[in-house]
Design a protein around this nucleic acid. Sequence first.
DNA 1: TCTCCTACCACATTTGAAATGC
DNA 2: AGCATTTCAAATGTGGTAGGAG
Length: 460
Amino acid sequence: MIHLPSLLDLKPNFSIPAPSSVAPGPDAYHQSSIKLTLEDNDLWKDFHEIGTEMIITKSGRRMFPHCKVNLAGLIPCVKYILLVDMVPVDSFRYKWNKEKWEVAGKAEPQPPCRTYVHPDSPAPGCHWMKQSVSFLKLKLTNNTLDQHGHIILHSMHRYHPRFHIVQAEDLYSVGWSMFQTFTFPETSFTAVTAYQNTKITKLKVDNNPFAKRFRDEEEGANGKRRAAKIAVCPPEKKAKKNAIVKRESDEDSPTDFCQSYEGYEGEEGDVPKRKEDVKEESYSPWAPEREQSVRTESPPGTDTRDMYNTEQLVPAPASYQPYRIHDYAKPPSPESRVPDVATVADHPDSSKSRTHDIGPSSCGPQQQPLPAHHQDYTNMTGVLNTMAQASKQGVLSHHIYSPYGAEQALGQWGGPGPTQYPPPPHHLPTDYTTQAVHHGYHHSNVAEWSQYPLFSYGCW
DNA sequence: TCTCCTACCACATTTGAAATGC
DNA sequence: AGCATTTCAAATGTGGTAGGAG
């Protein structure tokens, strides 16, 4: 069992650029070309600047903004599985005190770690790349006994989502598949059962169509309500909506979300106003964090996106240098066959028609992971050890927070009915994890990528 | 007393089936 | 008959709020 305080000590590990020798050469492996960009990045940053909060409820609550990404660089004919999980940003519990977050003690033991598998999974790369991928239906809960597969979090704790792209034919081969992980620091948030920061509440109300009735725009409750309705859902939009409805999967992230958000600028110039507020007040919801120079808002006057493009499992270093972690799947293990799809909100089988539309039949033979991967893996042994060290100290693994210890953390998957919760995969040895490597993408909100065994993190 | 959590509320949006039109 | 579009109601999601637990 890892002691929580050790996590802080490890933070420097992630601020140390890896030796350049570790960086893959230009012809390293094609996975390096995979790009994952966060949609609504500006909205996320708006929230992040204030200190994003996400409501968690017993029955499960969607995120807002919800995770929506664009993928590029995948092999069109190869099948991939997309997953999201939540990892603690640090080892603290927080409290909201006088307009800012303060550390309120050590984090509670990590609740059962769960991973949300995108319902379209598995699907060929062309499917993922043809349009944005939304995790709208992902839900957060504070109910540790949740039976619905929602992601379980602790209130008043900070988390950030990780996106995993697994090259796998099906969920049962995830255990030994190639995968890459992406994170966006601006998507970090504090799980709460009730909003603490009124600025966050306002931002949510202003941007979330479901909360439209709480907007205090145009005075006059009734007139306002009607006006808002007309503005957000004009006739042509409704027709458009109907078309969207027919589209499949979580892609359904209502376009209204984006549209209302983007269009909202026009209304009373509210968005710029908000930003001004933030600057003027030098608002700092994360005082403790800043004291540590661990992660904060973007430096002024720069394109912060590159700086956010950081693959990491702890808050980004102050330098905001982009990193990526390399690693490779462990050779297939009979015991690690079954991925933890127990945590899937919508069973992947629901990938159904839309996936099939562009299914393998149109793409020719399926490709298997390239042998080159193993070669690279071999070449990076030294780096792997470095990361393994960090992992052993709990940086990479969820279970470091587990109240059950490693074995019991695994055992958590045996809980609910077998039909809902397939057998748990085994952890892979952390020896396969690697040190972060500096990487210089220059795309806007493209996350850096990493590769390491899918089951290296504790919940698997 | 304070902090945090829960249940409930009213309202907006989403969803999908039925109705209608071409 | 088949398809596209529109309508409508149920389901779902939202933040606010009161009250309870610790």
